[in-house]
Structure formats: C-alpha cells, structure tokens
Amino acid sequence: MRFLIIIIAFLVALSCEDMETVIEIEMPPIEKELVIECYLEAGKPYRLMLTETKNYFDNLDECPFVRNAIVVITHAGQRDTLTEAIFFNDNCDPNDIIPYGFWPYLNHDSTRFFNYGSNTLCPHDFDNSFTVEVWDTTGRFAMSTTQFIPESPIEQFFSDSNNSGEYYALLSTMDDINTTDFYRFVLHKTSLTKKRSNGVASIPVARNPKFDRTLDDGGVFAGKEVTTASNYRFKSGDTLIGTIYHIDKTYHDYLESVGDAQSANASPFGQPAVVKSNIIGGQGIFAFLSYDRDTIVVP
C-alpha cells in the first residue's frame, strides 16, 4: 500500500510539472527594413520615429534607431526635411542614464517619443496629400502617402449608473452612409498625463486607456450611430476623456493586423497575420490623425 501511495504521489508530482519547455530553433535572417511611424496632426509639428526591423533573436541591446537618415515630408509641393534628434553618443544603450543616448522629440500628451522632427506645423488641408520619404546611409528608401480626412464629431458621450452606484461610459458618433468609414474609440480616465506625488515629473496614464477599439461601419453600424461603451467601472466624480479618431482604411488595417500578429504568437489557435503596412519599401504606418475629444465628469 505504501508503495502504491509513493507511486501515486510521484505520478501526481509529475503531472503538476511546468508544461512549458524552452527549445532551440534556428531562425533564418530577415532582410532589415526601415520602419516609419509617423502620425500627422493639423496644427502640430511633424514628428517621426525611424527604426529598422530586427531578427527576432537579435540582441535586444542592439540599437533599433536609424541614424543620419534623410527624412522629408512633402505637402502641396513644400518639402520639409526633418532633423534628427540630438544624440549624445553613439552607444545607443537603452540602459544609459539617458536611454539610447539621445534627447528625443516628445509629444505633449503622452509617452510618445521620436527621433526625427521639424518645427513646421502640419497644415489643415483637405485637398492635398502628404508624402513621407526616407533615405538612409545604407541606400534603403521607404515612402508613403496619406490624406487628411475630416474628424467625425462625438455624437454622445455620457455616463450612467447601475443600482450599485457604478457608472459606465458611452461614446458614439454618427456614421455617414455615403462613405466607408473607420474609427478608433479611446477612453481615458482622469487625464492623459498626471503629476507624480512629488509634483515634478509627469507619468503617463495615456498608455492605460479604459478602452481602445477600432470599429468600422459594416454590419450593425452601417449608416447608424457607431457606439461603444465601457463596463460599469467608474465612480461619481471620475473625469473621463473620450476620443474618436476618424481613420482611413490603411491605418485601420494596420492596427488590426498588428493586433492579430501580436496575438497569433501566443495562441495555439491563432493564425499568423502579415502586418499590413502602408509604407512602400518598409514597415510601419504613416497616418493622419483627425479626432474629436471631449471630457466629462461622472455625476
């Protein structure tokens, strides 16, 4: 009997083992491409992050940024060359006192940072397209074009409570039945940035949206009010910031395909997804951000 108990205990112990195993695989090297991430906002200066793709198993300390490239944004015949951020050294060390050894361009409301920028303000122009072109020192070239699309105004933004005194938030816009439209709905709580307790440095809360959803006007929303809502998770007095980005199909497809690619890696049932980029000769996204944003205080 004792022997049986020992055997059973042994088998149970085996059954409870960690079922993950690290294995060695050989990855074929990829052709390293330029990666452009650039969002235009009317009235805001041009900003762009230029990196390059890496082999998946490359050393993570290897510098992702592409140095000394020529970056040009052209609008209505006006060519604007973006300037590279100031690098203090060439180490590009993420563990440096100043990470990667450069002083990045930052945007005002989040943690976004860029390594190329210009003081030129992006014009509010419906008629002419914007083109970005990048040449790097190794001869690689990438480009893309995007177009301003008008914002889609917030139709409804309110909160309502359940019997437990918890509130949900609803955010909507009206769809234009004559056009095919794509949207990105984002909800933040309190503020896009807030001060640390010492009141000095700001810490980003924009990176923790309460929801961040891409929607299109197919199916249930065609020609109707495009709506999304949060769970009952807010309390009276909370400040909520709702943003509806009116985006084009290329940006919508890029967001969806990036999400699919990221989730495919960790899912036994996921299918590998190819990232749909609008960058010719590279990866990334070049998109115009048209958005309507509002703030409410939960009553």
């Binding site: 990855m27 390293k32 793709t53 998946y56 989040s110 943690t111 924009a206 690619a261």
Partner: peptide, 24 residues
C-alpha cells in the same frame, strides 16, 4: 509559423514604448 523579425512601435496613445510588432 513563427515571427522571424520584429520592430518597436509606439502607437498614438503611447502604449508600452517597448512593444514589439512581430513579423511573419
């Protein structure tokens, strides 16, 4: 299928700046 390449992405709402996009 496994991703053979990757790149970093910031995103417009400032997600994790060290978020990687896998390339299949």
């Amino acid at each position: 299928s496994l991703p053979t390449g990757r790149y970093i992405m910031s995103g417009i709402i400032g997600q994790n700046p060290y978020q990687f996009v896998p390339l299949y």
